[in-house]
Computed example of a mutant assay.
Amino acid sequence: MAGPAPRAAPGAHPIHIHPVRPLYRFAATGLSASMWFFLMYRARKDGAVLLGWRHPWDH
């Protein structure tokens, strides 16, 4: 069996979360922005069909 957990300093939280590296933060922002740009582009092209305002075979 495992022993007792080591004690942290008084007032310190036992879980330490490391800061995110700037490269990962920049990559996540870029990927999420490209996702939203693509969604808005497809909504502009196919939004009426998706909402049922127009049929895809109507030109």
Rank of each mutant, 00 (worst) to 15 (best):
R42W: 06
Y41W: 12
F38P: 01
W36L: 06
L39H: 05
F37H: 08
S34A: 14
Y41A: 11
R44E: 05
A28F: 03
A27I: 11
A33D: 11
L39S: 11
L39K: 05
I17S: 00
H16V: 11
P14V: 00
R21Y: 04
Y41N: 00
R44T: 05
S34D: 00
W36P: 02
T29P: 01
A28R: 13
L31I: 10
R25P: 01
A43V: 02
V20Y: 04
S34M: 11
L39F: 15
P19H: 09
H16C: 00
F38A: 12
F37V: 00
P14K: 04
I17E: 07
P19E: 09
R25G: 02
S34K: 09
I15L: 15
Y24G: 13
T29D: 13
A27L: 15
P19R: 12
R42F: 07
P14E: 01
V20W: 06
H16E: 09
P14S: 02
R25W: 09
G30M: 08
S32E: 11
R21F: 01
A33F: 10
R21S: 06
G30F: 07
M40Q: 04
Y24C: 12
Y24L: 14
A27F: 05
A28I: 03
W36G: 01
F37I: 14
H16M: 05
K45C: 04
A27N: 06
M35A: 12
V20N: 06
H18D: 09
H16N: 11
A33R: 06
S32C: 12
V20G: 04
F26R: 15
H18R: 00
S34C: 13
F26I: 08
I15Y: 14
P19W: 03
P14Q: 06
I15R: 13
G30S: 00
Y41G: 07
S32P: 02
D46M: 04
F26V: 04
